[in-house]
């Protein structure tokens, strides 16, 4: 059987809210090492990779590997019934066709359980190579959210260029043009307020803002976001979820004809 208990149920709620617009359905692949999800958006332009470690949960048991097919809008409906302070336990029998979610209030005086019907999803797993990136930028996730939201109101695509001067986001549209540059800035005392640019070589790539804006739905999960860029490769937008794991969004670039 599979059983995973998380005291901070709000994390699970935020996670599903972050994913549900981008991916309709996907498999929760559970094994003794944790829970993983890899899913593409409907247009196969971006990929979400979620990995939650077994030791990040208060309790984790998985007797045999399983792929649990989840419809994210439906999971979201159920998780909306959990309180923000609730502990959430996920449970499934081996080869089950449903996932049980149990919500316990912090003072244990309210317990509820919901069964989510599982789906059979044929999903292809893509191999994501480990690699060095030309530029890695860590910045406050709220800053990333603001930049992509602001630029989405001006244009459809963004040119992201990383140089020793900083990281620049540029767009243009009917109303005009916009440029936002962030400089390397380690002055703030709190690491989560710093902008750290690790540049091996200058790089410039163009991406669809619609997706970058969608990734920012993960902002409530983490104070810091990391962007990784290499010429002619997908950008990685990564949120560390405390000690529990990470969600990474990969977006294929726009390529000049």
């Amino acid at each position: 059987m599979f059983e995973a208990r998380i005291t901070q149920g709000a994390v699970l709620k935020k996670l599903v809210e972050a994913l549900k617009e981008l991916v309709t359905e996907g498999n929760f692949d559970v094994s003794s090492t944790g829970l993983q999800l890899q899913a593409m958006d409907s247009s196969h332009v971006c990929l979400v990779s979620l990995a939650l470690r077994e030791d990040g949960f208060e309790h984790f048991r998985c007797d045999r590997n399983m792929a649990m097919g989840i419809h994210f809008q439906n999971l979201s409906k159920i998780l909306k019934c959990a309180g923000n302070e609730d502990t959430i336990t996920l449970k499934a029998e081996d080869n089950a066709d449903q996932l049980t979610l149990m919500f316990e209030s912090s003072n244990q005086d309210r317990i509820s359980d919901f069964d989510l019907k599982l789906m059979s999803i044929e999903s292809e797993h893509l191999g994501i190579p480990d690699q060095e990136y030309s530029a890695e930028i860590k910045m406050p996730s709220s800053e990333y959210q603001r930049i992509v939201r602001d630029l989405t109101s001006i244009g459809d695509t963004v040119l992201i260029s990383a140089t020793k001067e900083g990281i620049k986001f540029s767009t243009s549209g009917d109303v005009g043009t916009a440029n936002v540059t962030l400089r390397h800035n380690t002055t703030p005392e709190k690491p989560e307020e710093q902008t750290i640019i690790d540049l091996k070589e200058p790089v410039a790539l163009t991406f669809a803002l619609r997706y970058l804006n969608n990734f920012a739905k993960a902002t409530p999960l983490a104070p810091v976001v990391k962007l990784s860029l290499t010429k002619d490769l997908p950008i990685v937008v990564e949120y560390q979820i405390g000690e529990l794991g990470a969600v990474k969004f990969y977006l294929a670039p726009k390529i000049d004809d």
């Binding site: 593409m40 726009k254 004809d257």
Partner: peptide, 14 residues
């Protein structure tokens, strides 16, 4: 103009 690439063009099937 620029063409939107598919993600599978970069990451092969496992």
């Amino acid at each position: 103009g620029a063409t939107q690439a598919k993600i599978s063009a970069f990451f092969g099937n496992k």
